[in-house]
């Protein structure tokens, strides 16, 4: 699975990724995150430490790809890759390598997180924010125009700690995109307000939402395949029974073809395999749905006022786990030498 972040420079993409990794070292409703590469994990934890003490990462100059495991109750459930881009890549011509890769990765993404800075959205002159959202909307709509499967779009409203209160006009620049999402049969969108500074608000929600559709798709696929193989097993089993079954067994054996009894056995093995996959991910999927049930999902009948009101109410605070904070203290002490 692939998750892609879209957003301009300084919007807080790297800050978000590091904060999320730090927070999800503890179980959040049973979910946690593990980097495949320990060095990547350590780097993100170090950044998370810095962020909690008010030191933000420098602008990303190169594309970095990370591979993670989403864990549930400490069991590895899904692996996914997540790329961090130089923000200016979204406004670069295609002769810029990063821009080219970004466009290609967007087309392959299973979930997309679109980052928008609340500070810029609240500015009196919204021109800059509107133009930035326009380009992101363009890249997104171009990327998904040929998809034939559901995709999640998390619209991450960053730096909400700088807002006194959510106001309707924050959502004005999204009017067109909302209409596209509502008109699409494949895109599920949500506004997710986030803060990553002295306090961490809603940090796990965007990633888990971005993964949601793919995860649900996998459980549905496993269920479908389970039923498919089980039905075939029943069919072969039925065909192998009775006088006709015995005659067919004789003919198949004589011709060297796979007998119905053997086919039934093979199909049952496949059904069991799908059942195991289904059982492995069923519980996490249910937990994920429950965890995300109160998100401000984009819907036809909601107004900007509704989104503002739901965003205002959706403010779940998180802390970095203790061991990261302790680690931070040690590092600070070392800093004296």
């Amino acid at each position: 699975m692939k998750v892609v972040m879209l957003g301009n420079s300084g919007v807080g993409k790297t800050t978000y990724m590091a904060s999320l990794y730090g927070i999800m070292q503890q179980k959040i409703d049973g979910f946690s995150l593990k980097a495949n590469d320990t060095a990547d994990g350590n780097r993100l934890l170090e950044l998370a430490n810095h962020i909690s003490s008010g030191r933000y990462p420098d602008a990303t100059s190169n594309r970095n790809e990370y591979n993670f495991y989403l864990q549930y109750q400490e069991k590895e459930i899904f692996s996914f890759s997540w790329s961090d881009y130089r923000g200016s890549a979204i406004r670069s011509m295609s002769d810029d390598k990063q821009s080219e890769i970004l466009v290609n990765e967007l087309k392959k993404a299973d979930g997309i997180m679109m980052f928008c800075d609340c500070d810029a959205l609240m500015a009196k002159n919204k021109l800059k924010a509107m133009n930035e959202i326009r380009r992101i909307t363009y890249l997104f709509t171009e990327a998904v125009k040929n998809i034939e499967h559901p995709i999640s779009l998390a619209i991450v409203l960053t730096k909400i700690d700088k807002l006194v209160q959510f106001q309707e006009d924050i959502f004005n620049p999204f009017e067109g995109l909302i209409s596209v999402i509502n008109a699409s049969e494949y895109i599920l969108g949500s506004f997710i307000p986030v803060a990553c500074s002295h306090q961490f608000i809603n940090v796990p929600l965007p990633l888990l939402f971005a993964l949601r559709f793919s995860v649900v798709y996998q459980v549905n696929l496993a269920e479908y395949m389970l039923n498919y193989h089980y039905n075939r097993y029943e069919e072969f089993k039925k065909n192998s029974q009775g006088i006709m079954g015995n005659i067919k067994w004789f003919v198949d054996s004589w011709n060297g073809d796979t007998t119905d009894a053997k086919n039934a056995e093979l199909e049952l093995a496949k059904a069991v395999q799908q059942y195991q996959i289904f059982e492995h991910i069923k519980e996490p999927v249910l937990a994920l749905n429950k965890y995300l049930e109160n998100l401000p999902i984009i819907e036809e009948n909601l107004t900007f006022k509704d989104y503002a009101s739901i965003c205002e109410k959706t403010k779940i605070k998180y802390n970095l786990p203790n061991f990261i904070a302790q680690n931070k203290q040690k590092q600070d002490t070392f800093g004296w030498f």
Partner: peptide
């Protein structure tokens, strides 16, 4: 129209053209 309007969008087929 590239921002979206009533569900419609107009997009340049070349991302550089859009820029």
């Amino acid at each position: 129209m590239s921002m979206g309007l009533k569900g419609f969008t107009l997009t340049a087929t070349d991302p550089d053209q859009d820029l």
